[in-house]
Simulated scan of single mutants.
Amino acid sequence: MVLRALQGALAFLTRLPVGGDERAWDAFRRTPVAFVLAGYVVGGFAALPLALPLPLSTTAALYLVTLYLLTGVTHADGLADVADAAAVHDDSTDRERRRAALKDADTGVGGTLAVVLTLAALTLGALGMAGSGPRVAATIALAAEIGAKTGMATLVCLGDAAHEGLGSALADEADAAALLPTLVAAVPVLALAPPLGTPAVVAALLGGPVVAVLLLRWARGALGGVSGDVFGAANELGRAVGVHAGVVAWALL
């Protein structure tokens, strides 16, 4: 069951040719911990360039290229849609207008700015990771990815769907009781922490869930619940925050 759920998670969250089918998708929807397991896979691949003895700028660039070759741009599109919704001015019909902004195929100024700033932040974070040494960099990258996926799982377990669609397909299948095993599944990455590096790995791991909780609070008020776009935004923002949190924690050791 878990392996099939992981297959569904990788088919949904990445561009890896895992051959996901309807059974894998259904297993994934019912198994939030599969998000976290997928984070180990994606984070492991993305961390590989950071373990190579290359110039910092090259290492950071390869990290970003590997990451988006693996995951595509679907989650970044979700971030753009959420930012466009957040940019809607407050008025009496504010929630409906924000939902309409989510579904608008055209990316507005808010969405463009959010994607550019998040990518810039991730790029700078990647440079910071690369400058921390290969083992530290790779472990922070792995933990940040697992944290981002844990954040998505947190939304699935705690959120209610704003409308029918991807959000309801995921959130309606889980409840708060599924959150504990999901969080536990993220803990083993701590065993990979380098000497004196555990605080940095913990910080990187916590970035995703913290961002998800903040996004959930906003989405409940602004949209009436979560959606597929909110999941994507949580992934992109959670990763960037996790990377910086890990780098800062390592620098302050």
Rank of each mutant, 00 (worst) to 15 (best):
V109H: 07
Y68I: 05
G167S: 03
A162G: 06
G221N: 14
T139G: 00
A219P: 09
H89M: 12
H75E: 03
A137V: 13
A200D: 03
A76D: 09
R217P: 04
N235C: 08
G238I: 00
A240Q: 06
A161T: 07
A177D: 15
L215R: 06
P209V: 01
D229V: 03
L37E: 08
G232L: 04
P194S: 12
G43P: 10
V116N: 02
T66E: 13
L50G: 02
T123Q: 06
A85W: 06
A86D: 05
L56A: 15
S227T: 15
V82F: 04
G108T: 12
L122W: 09
T14Q: 12
L206D: 01
D21T: 07
V82H: 00
P194V: 13
T71E: 02
V243N: 09
R15D: 08
L237I: 15
A61R: 02
G19D: 05
L206F: 01
R217Q: 14
L158M: 08
F28T: 06
V247G: 00
G242A: 03
R239M: 14
A101L: 02
T150G: 06
V36P: 07
Y63W: 15
V213R: 11
G44N: 12
A61F: 14
G165E: 08
V18I: 08
A191M: 12
V42L: 15
D94S: 14
P194Y: 06
L170M: 11
P199S: 09
R30T: 15
L166I: 14
V18H: 05
D26C: 05
Y40E: 10
A249E: 11
A144E: 08
G232R: 04
Y63E: 12
L54M: 14
D84M: 03
A86C: 11
G165T: 10
G20T: 03
A204Q: 00
G225K: 11
G197I: 01
P55E: 09
A9R: 04
F231R: 06
L179D: 10
A138G: 13
V88Y: 01
A193R: 02
A245T: 04
D90G: 01
A47W: 01
A251L: 15
G108H: 06
G151Q: 05
A193C: 15
